[in-house]
Structures are given as C-alpha cells and as structure tokens.
Design a protein around this nucleic acid. Structure first.
Lengths: 235, 235
DNA sequence: CCCTGGATGTGAACGGTGTTAACAAGCTAA
DNA sequence: TTAGCTTGTTAACACCGTTCACATCCAGGG
C-alpha cells in the first residue's frame, strides 16, 4: 500500500473513465465509445483523458484487460465451490459460467472474443485463455483419462505437440484433440448465441447448450455425473 | 432488358461505389468505410452518394447483400460439379468452400457473420443461411438416413420442430439435432480461425478443419467416402 | 427544334469525432 | 515559500455523416 494520495485519485478516475466507457459500449455498441462522450459523462473535456490514456484505442485496450480479469474471475468463482476431486463437475460449471457471462454481457464478449481488430488485443486474449484452457485440460486428463481417438492427423498432432510444449501442458495429443474440439463447439455455440445468429433458429439456446455439455460429460466418461444446473445467476 | 441508358449508368456507379466500399472494408476494417473516403475514390463528393444510398448504413447493407450473394454462389459452385447422388460429397465440398471463402475474405466474413450490429443485418443473414442449411440437410437425410441420438431434450426438440415447420424441412428432429451440432462446430472453427483466435494455438487451422469434416462424414455413415481435398483454390 | 422537368452532382454548413499544442491552475515536495 | 510536476482547460486541425440550396445535364414532349 505504498500508494500516495495522488496515485490513488489517479487510479480512481482512471477506473471511472473505464466504467463510463463500458457503459457506452453496452449501450450503443463499439462505435458508441467516443472520447468526447466519455469525457462529458466523467465531467471533463476530451483532451483531459489523454492524461490517463495515450489514445482511445489504449483506453479500450485497458478496458478489455479489466474485462478479461472479470471473466476469468467469474470462471474461477464458478469452479471454486466444487471439490477439486471432481474436475468434470468443475469443468461443466466453468463452461456454464462462460456462457452465462457471455450472454449477460454481449457487448463485452464482442470486445474480448469477437473479431480482433488489433493484433495487440488478439495476443491478450490468447495469453489469458491459454492459461485457463491449459489448467482445465490437465485437470480433466489427470482425473479421468478419458478415451480419445486412436489416431490424430500427423499435421494436427505436430501442432498440438508444439502447443503442449509451449503451454507446459501434460495432456497427450489425442486427448488434447478431443478437448480442443469441445472448446470449438462451446465457442461456436456461445458466439452464435451472443451474436444473435441462433435466435432465428432456436429462440433460447440453453437446451442445445446443455445437451452439448451432456455430450461433453459423456465423452469424458462421467456421463452419470452430469446434472442439470440450478437456475442460473448472472454476474 | 428494358433498361434505359440512365438506369444502366446508375446501376454501374452504384456497383462501383459498393466495390470501393468493399476495398476500404478489407483494407482498413469496418471503421475505415467512410462516406467521404469512398466518394473521393469514386471521384465524387460525399453528398453525391446520397443519390444512390440513403445513408452509409444502407450502403453497407447493400454491400452485405451482394456479399451474401457472392458467398452463396461460391457454395453453390462448389457443390455443383459433384453428382447429385452423392449428397455427402457435396456437403463436404460446400463446407470446404465456406471455410475457403471465409478465410480468403475475413473482413467480409466479419460483416456477414460477425456480431450483427443491426437487427436488420441479422435478419438478412438468417434468411440466407436458413435456406442453404435447409436444402443441404434434407438432401443429406434423404440420401443417408444417418444414425441420430435416440432422444433429444424435449425443450430442444420443440424448438427444432418449430423450425422445421417454419423452414419447410423434412428432416426428423434427432437428425436435425446432429446436423445443427455440426453447423455449430463448423461455424465455431471458421469463426475462430477468421478472427485469428486459432493462430496462437494452431498456426494453420486446416488439419483440424479437415479432421472435423472427417468426423462429420463418419457420423453420416459415409466414412470411407471421405477424401482429402485437392489443393484449394480461392475465389 | 426548343425547352421543361427530373436526375445527378456540387459547395457550404452543422454538429460530431480523435488528437495536438499552448496555457492555466493546483498539489507535492524540497 | 517556492519550484516543479500533475492535472485540466481552451483553441485549433483534420476528419466524419448528413442536410440544404444551388448548378448542371440529359431525356422526352410540345
């Protein structure tokens, strides 16, 4: 706590600026995040914001960082109450939390996992989610040793091997392939739902999501342990 | 061909405007599509464009319509040379064409299937892709009668039934469930790849994509008929 | 043939945007 | 108390979408 009074105030207004920016993001989409409008709401003039962020883009990047933290915290919080011995149940809870957060915060989801306008933001997303996926996948493998396809395409196997080495994972290649496949399904489902492309077909995407989770649980060999969730609680 | 000379010229410049808009879209992303910049490149002043489109948003909508046509044509062209008796091979070709087009045109993909900023554009996307999915799925079912999960969650089944009725499909509910699942995987995969979120993990996404297609082929019961594609050709 | 009317495009203007520069005030520390 | 860094302002520049009044030009009818 070696924070001087100045630094504390500075951090506070920086936080307020990001909060206002977020309000504008959810209210009017990405293009409604304007420096001048934010400044108005904060009670400053636009150039004043440059004392806190070097550009609008960097402001948005900072906001994105906060949102990554928030999402990661939500995922962690969802898995925490469950016993570590039940990695499967934890994984399911994390998946549900991922969908719940995304559906509750579509604009923020677009910023974090939508088409990455900046190479910068792309790298941030990768850094964050690689870690989560790595720990979750090793936990799942260590506990269940679920069946995996006998053979993986050599080119794909090489890529997965490289990733395992880079990320320091211990999951064998075929199992990694299985889990990556489910991550793709999860992302596809949530992404479609958040973008609204599923509303036209399904209305409510939850049943399809839950059934996908059930398939996931079965693939992991904990089919019977699957349970429908309690009525969800947003964050 | 009851087109007067005026109408022809008008259509020509409208097309040129959209072409320039597209160039700006791919060059600098969605926010680089500016009325004034387009006007400059076309050789007009900005207000002149209002004789052709009532607003920038409508211009982009018109461009999106063209792109839907282009994508749909690319998919049709991919399936056309294959014999109608092999619906499975056609489906695989269409899937590959979908990925090829999307990867070759990431900016356009973002406009068509990314987060829909307008309810308007969302409806357009739904209209287009529902049709393609409907015909493709009925063809697949008629020909293969592939195995499907014994039971579908009642809530999900009700939604699928409603959609079948609305879209005039003839595919039974469990089969529809299977195909929808693969559409989600396909979309998730391509969406991740186009957004760049897969580069950090895989580098090249083609092996994973092809393996997913192989799984798809096996699920349809035409496992042996799967063949790796010839070196792809972009459009 | 003219010539009238609609189609097409221009210039000016309004309010909005991001960003920079020069400048004023205020708090902190010596 | 004073010097200096921090914070915020105002003015300005260049861009944006959009509207309005005005010019121009081409097509069709007298």
């Amino acid at each position: 706590m070696a924070t001087t009074r100045r630094e504390r105030l500075r951090a506070e207004t920086a936080a307020e600026i990001k909060a206002v920016a977020r309000r504008h993001l959810v209210a009017g989409g990405p293009q409604a995040v304007s420096l001048r409008a934010i400044a108005r709401d904060v009670g400053m003039t636009a150039p004043g914001l440059y004392r806190y962020f070097p550009s609008l883009d960097e402001l948005v990047n900072a906001l994105a960082d906060d949102l990554y933290d928030e999402l990661a915290a939500a995922l962690a919080r969802a898995g925490a109450p469950l016993p570590a011995a039940e990695a499967g149940a934890r994984a399911l809870a994390v998946c549900r939390a991922f969908r719940a957060w995304s559906v509750a915060h579509p604009a923020e989801f677009g910023l974090l996992l939508g088409p990455a306008d900046t190479e910068e933001r792309l790298a941030r997303a990768a850094r964050r989610f690689e870690g989560i996926f790595a720990t979750l996948s090793t936990d799942l493998w260590r506990q269940y040793r679920f069946p995996a396809p006998v053979e993986v395409d050599p080119a794909l196997a090489a890529q997965l091997d490289a990733w395992r080495q880079r990320a320091g994972s211990a999951v064998p290649t075929p199992a990694l392939r299985v889990l990556l496949g489910y991550w793709v399904r999860l992302y596809g489902l949530v992404s479609l739902e958040v973008a609204g492309h599923l509303r036209a077909v399904l209305g409510d995407a939850e049943p399809l999501f839950e059934e996908t989770l059930r398939e996931f649980a079965e693939a992991l060999g904990l089919g019977a342990a699957y349970r429908r969730p309690a009525p969800e609680r947003a964050t």
